[in-house]
């Protein structure tokens, strides 16, 4: 049986590379009983359509940035709370704490989780040097969802909505002067042409999730399911490794482009942490008891 696997990011992205290896592992491991064909770059379904497509069996398996669905349920945004888990290790802990809830939530939607791989940590890009939150006041800040708009509000910056495809142009023309994103975004968009500073605040590490339609999953032989789960473990491990490698690579790229890359000042870090607490509390209100359980479990570790 062939499983077409829609993926949202370009074939050269490390998530897509991980997915392609996973597909090959499954195809070989099951002796062709399940053959996975990846379709990167949103060539089958666009990113926003992938979850629903898998949910309804239009595609058996797919990959999606799950925090994209936080309008639907705040729980999906657990990995995108600013300054809650600010390192690969913390992000791992947070994921372990949240996994049961997310699996349960996905199960209700006819989805079975296979593996999750983080993006490089999110840092702050600025045109000029910034050493405290007070200095951010009035700076035009790229927002792309409600959380980033709220972050702008709390830091006194002016949110401007800019789609991913328009980032480099927006900075070049001064439509925006700051953003929060991973090092890879800035590297891909060559933002050093207009921005000078990247602060490694590691605000959060969003994840891509690979999930399969539960009915199709249950209809697959146990032997195949075991192989697929094994391949998923390998993919998760390899993906994590790649994410770390890629973080270093892109930050070096930003440096080579002429940007100042480094940690934020102590004062700024402390102030951002406070804003993070505010936003964590707001998220907890939206996500209810289940959300509280996740954060408590994470903090207890």
């Amino acid at each position: 049986e062939t499983w077409d696997m829609p993926m949202a990011y370009s074939a050269s992205n490390f998530h897509s590379a991980t997915g392609a290896e996973f597909a090959e592992c499954v195809t070989t491991g099951t002796g062709g009983e399940v053959e996975i064909k990846t379709h990167p770059s949103g060539s089958l379904f666009k990113g926003a359509d992938i979850k629903r497509a898998v949910q309804t069996g239009q595609a058996p398996i797919g990959e999606r940035l799950l925090s994209g669905h936080q309008n639907e349920n705040a729980l999906f945004g657990f990995d995108s709370i600013p300054f809650l888990a600010t390192s690969f290790d913390d992000s791992d802990k947070l994921w372990r704490a949240a996994k049961p809830s997310i699996e349960k939530l996905l199960a209700e939607q006819n989805l079975t989780l296979l593996y999750a791989v983080p993006w490089p940590p999110q840092g702050l890009y600025f045109k000029n040097e910034v050493t405290s939150v007070a200095e951010m006041k009035g700076i035009k800040f790229r927002s792309y969802n409600n959380a980033t708009s709220r972050l702008a509000e709390l830091t006194g910056m002016l949110p401007v909505t800019i789609e991913a495809a328009e980032i480099s142009q927006a900075f070049a023309t001064g439509v925006a002067e700051a953003m929060i994103s991973s090092g890879s975004t800035g590297y891909d968009r060559k933002v050093w042409e207009s921005l000078g500073y990247f602060y490694e605040v590691d605000a959060w590490l969003p994840r891509n999730y690979v999930f399969v339609n539960t009915e199709i999953w249950n209809g697959t032989s146990e032997a195949s399911r075991n192989v697929i789960m094994g391949c998923a473990k390998l993919a998760e491990y390899a993906g994590n490794w790649r994410a770390k490698e890629y973080t270093g690579f892109t930050l070096q790229g930003l440096r080579d482009g002429g940007m100042n890359v480094g940690p934020a000042s102590e004062q700024m870090t402390a102030e951002l942490k406070e804003i993070g607490d505010t936003m964590t509390n707001e998220w907890l209100e939206a996500a209810g008891d289940e959300g509280k359980a996740i954060v408590d479990a994470f903090r207890a570790e």
Partner: peptide, 15 residues
């Protein structure tokens, strides 16, 4: 019907 049933909301800022 399924959009309504799943309570499918836009993933953009318009919700």
């Amino acid at each position: 019907y399924w959009s309504w049933k799943f309570n499918d909301v836009s993933q953009g800022q318009d919700r």
